[in-house]
Amino acid sequence: MSIQHFRVALIPFFAAFCLPVFAHPETLVKVKDAEDQLGARVGYIELDLNSGKILESFRPEERFPMMSTFKVLLCGAVLSRVDAGQEQLGRRIHYSQNDLVEYSPVTEKHLTDGMTVRELCSAAITMSDNTAANLLLTTIGGPKELTAFLHNMGDHVTRLDRWEPELNEAIPNDERDTTMPAAMATTLRKLLTGELLTLASRQQLIDWMEADKVAGPLLRSALPAGWFIADKSGAGERGSRGIIAALGPDGKPSRIVVIYTTGSQATMDERNRQIAEIGASLIKHW
């Protein structure tokens, strides 16, 4: 067993022997301040990774656009098919120029040779490549099948209805392509620590998230040296922004954090800054 596999296998073990965790309302004060600064709703939840206990939450059962955070769930569904012998990570998928959609920095470079399922998941999570996500959605049967996968996990809230990039439209009061912070946090925890996926697939999923290259201005910008984070960000229309993450000190994750916002007129930089400040408060009061 590799060191990384050992780390993920012992996530519940280490967490069980940690000192009790206590909620700190100071972080919620910052979440509410972010709402004021952005002029928009902000949803927040913080779960203990081992027990699933909610440590703090704000608007945990209000719907927010998922945006690209759905790509972690998508690759979880792909990995479940791999575990069941219905898919192979090494299978190569070929596609054409007509398949390319807006923001496809990886797939646009491989029109000639195609990409493997493993490479597509890596591109979808680490670079948020939209064509990679659409190609992977095709392998599982489309958005409705991802929703069905989530329902089978016990998540009857999260739903995907459309493809990239239309799913980022974020129309107010439109339930399409949305989740709730509580539902997303619980589902992410199941994917990373539950028995739904094999140990190898859980490790692969967290490795992809740990290698995320496009979430630097968010929670990662607030992390002290030595902290662990595996995350996936999302951005959408109407001032929408979000991030889902597993993080913790001492090089291992111990909490799940989900943050979503929508309806702001603020710039992307300002949305990023507010999420980073929430992260800084979380870490300060850990």
Score class of each variant (00 low, 15 high):
24 H>M: 10
25 P>S: 10
25 P>F: 10
27 T>W: 01
27 T>I: 10
29 V>W: 15
30 K>N: 05
30 K>G: 04
31 V>H: 00
32 K>C: 08
32 K>V: 12
34 A>E: 03
34 A>D: 03
34 A>N: 04
35 E>H: 02
37 Q>G: 13
37 Q>E: 14
37 Q>A: 14
37 Q>P: 04
40 A>H: 03
40 A>I: 05
41 R>G: 05
42 V>H: 03
42 V>R: 00
43 G>H: 00
45 I>P: 01
46 E>A: 11
46 E>S: 14
47 L>S: 06
48 D>P: 01
49 L>S: 07
50 N>Y: 12
50 N>E: 13
51 S>M: 07
51 S>C: 06
52 G>T: 06
52 G>C: 03
54 I>S: 07
54 I>N: 06
55 L>S: 06
56 E>T: 11
56 E>H: 08
57 S>R: 11
57 S>V: 11
58 F>C: 07
58 F>T: 07
59 R>Y: 03
60 P>A: 15
61 E>A: 12
62 E>Y: 07
62 E>P: 01
62 E>H: 08
63 R>N: 07
63 R>V: 07
63 R>Y: 08
65 P>S: 06
65 P>Y: 02
65 P>K: 02
65 P>T: 03
66 M>D: 00
67 M>P: 02
67 M>G: 12
68 S>D: 00
68 S>I: 06
68 S>N: 04
70 F>Q: 06
71 K>Q: 00
71 K>G: 00
72 V>L: 06
72 V>Q: 03
73 L>G: 07
74 L>T: 06
74 L>V: 10
74 L>K: 01
75 C>H: 00
75 C>L: 05
77 A>M: 15
77 A>H: 12
77 A>R: 09
78 V>N: 02
80 S>Q: 15
81 R>A: 10
81 R>C: 06
82 V>G: 06
82 V>C: 11
83 D>V: 05
83 D>G: 06
83 D>P: 01
84 A>C: 09
84 A>I: 12
85 G>P: 01
85 G>L: 09
86 Q>Y: 15
86 Q>T: 15
87 E>M: 11
87 E>I: 11
88 Q>T: 14
88 Q>W: 15
90 G>P: 08
91 R>Q: 07
91 R>A: 07
92 R>V: 14
94 H>M: 11
94 H>Y: 11
97 Q>W: 12
98 N>T: 14
99 D>N: 09
100 L>G: 03
100 L>C: 06
100 L>F: 08
101 V>D: 10
102 E>V: 15
103 Y>N: 07
103 Y>P: 07
103 Y>G: 06
104 S>V: 03
105 P>N: 05
106 V>I: 15
107 T>R: 00
107 T>C: 11
107 T>E: 01
108 E>W: 09
109 K>G: 13
109 K>M: 14
109 K>I: 11
110 H>Y: 15
110 H>Q: 10
110 H>C: 08
110 H>L: 09
111 L>Q: 11
111 L>D: 07
112 T>F: 13
112 T>Q: 12
113 D>L: 10
114 G>F: 06
115 M>K: 05
115 M>C: 05
116 T>R: 05
116 T>I: 06
117 V>R: 02
118 R>K: 13
118 R>M: 12
119 E>T: 05
120 L>T: 03
120 L>P: 01
120 L>F: 04
120 L>M: 09
121 C>W: 02
122 S>I: 10
122 S>M: 11
122 S>A: 13
122 S>W: 11
122 S>Q: 14
124 A>E: 03
124 A>S: 10
124 A>Q: 02
125 I>S: 01
125 I>M: 10
126 T>L: 08
126 T>P: 01
126 T>R: 07
126 T>F: 01
127 M>L: 14
128 S>R: 02
130 N>H: 00
130 N>T: 01
131 T>C: 09
131 T>G: 12
134 N>Q: 02
136 L>T: 04
136 L>S: 01
137 L>F: 08
137 L>W: 02
137 L>G: 04
138 T>H: 15
139 T>Y: 07
140 I>V: 14
140 I>K: 01
141 G>W: 02
141 G>N: 08
141 G>H: 06
141 G>I: 04
143 P>L: 06
144 K>R: 12
146 L>Y: 06
148 A>R: 12
149 F>M: 12
149 F>E: 07
150 L>I: 12
151 H>D: 11
151 H>K: 13
153 M>A: 11
154 G>E: 11
154 G>F: 03
155 D>R: 01
155 D>P: 02
157 V>H: 12
157 V>E: 12
157 V>Q: 12
158 T>Y: 02
159 R>H: 13
159 R>P: 05
161 D>I: 01
161 D>G: 01
161 D>R: 02
162 R>L: 04
162 R>A: 05
163 W>E: 09
164 E>H: 00
165 P>V: 09
165 P>G: 06
165 P>Q: 07
165 P>M: 08
166 E>Y: 14
167 L>I: 13
169 E>Y: 09
170 A>N: 09
170 A>T: 08
171 I>W: 15
172 P>Q: 11
173 N>G: 13
174 D>C: 06
175 E>M: 14
176 R>E: 07
177 D>Q: 01
179 T>P: 01
180 M>D: 10
180 M>A: 11
182 A>D: 09
182 A>M: 13
182 A>P: 06
182 A>H: 15
183 A>I: 10
183 A>H: 12
184 M>W: 00
185 A>R: 03
185 A>P: 00
185 A>M: 02
187 T>L: 09
187 T>R: 05
188 L>W: 04
189 R>Q: 15
190 K>P: 04
192 L>V: 10
193 T>W: 13
196 L>R: 14
196 L>D: 14
197 L>G: 05
197 L>D: 04
198 T>F: 07
199 L>G: 13
199 L>Y: 11
201 S>A: 13
201 S>N: 10
202 R>I: 08
204 Q>C: 15
205 L>K: 02
205 L>E: 01
205 L>F: 06
206 I>W: 10
208 W>S: 03
208 W>H: 03
210 E>T: 09
211 A>C: 14
211 A>I: 08
213 K>C: 09
213 K>Q: 14
214 V>P: 05
215 A>I: 05
215 A>V: 05
217 P>E: 10
217 P>V: 10
218 L>S: 01
218 L>W: 02
218 L>G: 04
218 L>I: 05
218 L>M: 09
220 R>Q: 05
220 R>F: 02
222 A>N: 10
223 L>I: 14
225 A>H: 12
226 G>Y: 07
228 F>Q: 06
228 F>M: 10
230 A>I: 06
230 A>H: 02
231 D>L: 04
232 K>I: 02
232 K>T: 01
233 S>N: 00
234 G>P: 00
234 G>L: 00
234 G>Y: 01
234 G>D: 01
234 G>T: 00
235 A>T: 07
235 A>F: 02
236 G>S: 07
237 E>F: 12
238 R>F: 15
238 R>E: 09
238 R>L: 11
238 R>D: 07
239 G>N: 06
240 S>L: 01
241 R>K: 07
241 R>F: 01
242 G>T: 02
242 G>V: 00
243 I>K: 02
243 I>Y: 06
244 I>E: 02
244 I>W: 00
244 I>Y: 00
244 I>A: 08
244 I>C: 09
245 A>T: 06
245 A>E: 01
245 A>P: 01
246 A>L: 15
247 L>V: 12
247 L>G: 01
248 G>N: 02
249 P>L: 07
249 P>C: 07
250 D>Q: 14
250 D>W: 12
251 G>C: 09
252 K>F: 12
252 K>V: 12
253 P>H: 10
253 P>D: 09
254 S>D: 14
254 S>V: 12
254 S>N: 15
255 R>W: 03
255 R>D: 02
256 I>L: 12
256 I>P: 00
257 V>C: 09
257 V>S: 04
258 V>S: 06
258 V>R: 00
259 I>P: 01
260 Y>T: 05
260 Y>C: 05
260 Y>W: 00
261 T>I: 15
261 T>R: 05
261 T>S: 11
263 G>N: 11
263 G>P: 05
264 S>L: 04
264 S>Y: 06
265 Q>K: 15
266 A>F: 13
266 A>C: 14
266 A>H: 14
267 T>A: 12
268 M>L: 12
268 M>C: 07
269 D>P: 11
270 E>I: 12
270 E>Q: 10
270 E>A: 15
270 E>P: 05
274 Q>E: 14
274 Q>M: 13
274 Q>P: 05
275 I>V: 13
275 I>H: 03
278 I>V: 10
278 I>M: 09
278 I>K: 03
279 G>L: 06
280 A>C: 09
281 S>W: 08
281 S>N: 15
281 S>F: 09
282 L>R: 03
282 L>C: 09
283 I>C: 08
284 K>Y: 11
285 H>T: 12
